[in-house]
Design a binder for these strands. Structure first.
Lengths: 151, 151
DNA sequence: CCAGATGCTTCGAGCCTCGAATCAATTGGT
DNA sequence: ACCAATTGATTCGAGGCTCGAAGCATCTGG
């Protein structure tokens, strides 16, 4: 192995990201989603408290204007709703609509069916999650999952 | 663990990609590179035969016009050179210039220093590369590395 | 009560990506 | 040898994505 293991890992991470995005592209289009809107939709976990624009932007590594733009598309599409945070009326929290929850589930479903990771066994996946989690600095086993996700 | 392991793996892979990109952003700017040009530069391995536009586009999951656009930036920047392929004069092969090789090395160096994967031990990295490689369908240990890389 | 800080949005600019059209070169059939 | 179809690359125009600057509303500290 001439390339360093670290370089290979970074390259493989990148490649898997690109391949996954490439494979779900047409599915997203069927739902009227773009990579950016799909990523944002995925990042809103309906089982958690609706995030503010600020926290969502941080989660997506984008700035506030960008998130406003993307959220406008999702609200136009009827998938999310913005409402004022009662405790701080400057802040707006974003929640999925009923339709938003359905589309989000469908997108995740399709992604899990198409991602190259689907070719790994359960044991391999658990090992992998362990290693990726450590790289992300999420402690041993049970750290709170706060990750966003695929484009 | 309430989320499926597969979903967690996809989310973690995505998160690592985004975090890496976020961390190297300022380094790329110092080299006058954008995410797209840096990715293309990385994808040209100087130890291999210069790829054609077509094969490079496939490697980067983009189409021909897009790659033309990105390559124009890299040639303007003096990092790559295009020349006609003698065996098929429709095709143009892309090669790094001396400066291109230097900048490419520096970008990779900076990325490896900043990526969250750097927090793993050698053993963990080897395990990880093994798993990612299997997901990518690259056989056991020695499959030919053909991956592109980070933005 | 006011000055500064904070959260969000709008606006304008630049970058990224794509489909359609075009040109040059190759390939295959006759 | 010729011509039609194919292929690789580029240009052009449109649209999507991302950002910094500016503006507005709200909160906080003094």
């Amino acid at each position: 192995m001439t390339r360093s293991t670290l370089e290979t890992a970074v390259a493989a991470n990148h490649e898997l990201f690109m391949q996954t995005g490439d494979r779900i592209e047409s599915v997203l289009a069927e739902f009227g989603l773009t990579p950016a809107t799909a990523q944002a939709l995925w990042a809103i976990d309906p089982t958690e408290a609706p995030p503010s624009m600020k926290s969502l932007a941080a989660r997506l590594y984008c700035n506030a204007p960008n998130l406003s733009f993307v959220m406008n598309q999702l609200t136009d599409r009827g998938l999310v709703e913005r409402s004022a945070d009662p405790s701080d009326r400057r802040s707006r929290v974003v929640a999925l609509t009923e339709d938003g929850r359905r589309v989000r589930s469908a997108v995740i479903e399709a992604t899990l069916a198409l991602t190259p990771f689907a070719g790994l066994t359960d044991d391999e996946l658990r090992q992998l999650v362990q290693l990726l989690g450590k790289a992300l600095g999420r402690g041993g086993t049970g750290g709170p999952p706060q990750a966003p996700a695929a484009s």
